[in-house]
């Protein structure tokens, strides 16, 4: 349990949260140790899990107070810098000369932001370790933002972008509104569409979005875990981890389960092997 305990301890920075977590973990260890029988131990472990979940939920408000201004700036920079550059690179090739160019640019940037978000989360994880900011607070905020991005903001931005481009060349006989494709479906509609037996594109799109949300969570942990290694090991581990997860998560979409399992195992391994944080 020590690996899991270390990982959980790494998540919180608020003294009250950490104390609550430590004492709940000690209670769980004590209770499981004094319980005989596999069934009773499983029951004790389940109750400990519920108690830890409750500690996490109760700690969230306090953890938010430990999001330093610097870490928020890094979040914003990491989130917006590369997507804006990517959008600016492809911008001249795909936009018409007419229309509100600033609005089109903003709409076009949402997709790269959502796609790049897990990598931004990796940078944020590194910053959290450096600044001793709350990992739990950052992770929850980033995952919620990514769910909102891939679930609703990105599809709506895609649709608006398509609609504006379509309107430029639209004639009187053409329909007023362009139909939504799978990239433009909000999450609830995409879930419904993916249940149809023939809807392989909708299922794949749903899978991509789920992968992005899961990757965001694990990349924060990986960034944080990487900072707990020695500098040389840090570069090797982080590079290998990022490359592998990017390869599995982005290019082999069937690896969603692998992505989650690998990310969890790697984060646990890193935290377990290096319990003392690197303060440099």
């Amino acid at each position: 349990m020590s690996g899991l305990a270390n990982l959980l301890r790494a998540l919180v920075v608020d003294p009250r949260s950490r104390r609550a977590l430590d004492e709940t973990l000690l209670d769980a260890t004590e209770e499981i140790a004094h319980t005989s029988g596999v069934g009773a131990q499983c029951w004790a472990a389940a109750r400990a899990g519920v108690a830890l979940g409750r500690v996490g939920l109760g700690s969230f408000g306090r953890e938010l107070q430990h999001l330093h201004a610097t870490s928020v700036v890094i979040v914003l920079l990491a989130t917006f810098s590369v997507p804006v550059v990517v959008t600016a690179t492809v911008w001249p090739a795909i936009t018409p000369s007419s229309g509100s160019r600033a609005t089109l640019f903003a709409l076009l940037t949402i997709g790269p932001i959502a796609a790049f978000f897990p990598v931004s989360a990796f940078v944020v994880g590194i910053a959290a370790a450096r600044l001793r900011a709350s990992l739990l607070g950052l992770t929850v905020v980033l995952v919620v933002v990514e769910v909102a991005l891939v679930g609703w903001l990105m599809p709506e931005a895609n649709q608006q972008f398509k609609q504006r481009i379509y309107s430029v060349g639209r004639t009187a006989t053409m329909p007023l509104e362009i139909r939504r494709g799978v990239n433009e479906l909000p999450l609830q509609q995409l879930v419904r569409a993916s249940r149809v037996p023939e809807a392989s594109r909708a299922r794949q799109q749903l899978y991509v979005r789920m992968t992005l949300c899961a990757a965001t969570m694990w990349f924060v942990g990986l960034g944080y875990g990487a900072m707990r290694l020695s500098p040389r090991a840090r570069i090797l581990w982080a590079s290998a981890a990022v490359l592998t997860i990017v390869a599995i998560g982005y290019f082999r979409l069937g690896g969603f389960t692998l992505l989650v399992a690998f990310g969890l195992a790697l984060t646990l391994a890193i935290v377990r092997a290096h319990r003392d944080p690197v303060t440099a």
């Binding site: 000690l26 109750r47 830890l52 500690v55 109760g58």
Partner: peptide, 26 residues
């Protein structure tokens, strides 16, 4: 179980309870 230690920590800060180390770090 998940909430009692936050309450106990707050009560200790207020001076309503005190604590000492028991078995196994508890």
């Amino acid at each position: 179980r998940g909430g009692i230690y936050v309450t106990l920590g707050r009560m200790e800060e207020k001076g309503l309870v005190s604590s000492r180390a028991g078995d196994n770090g508890r």
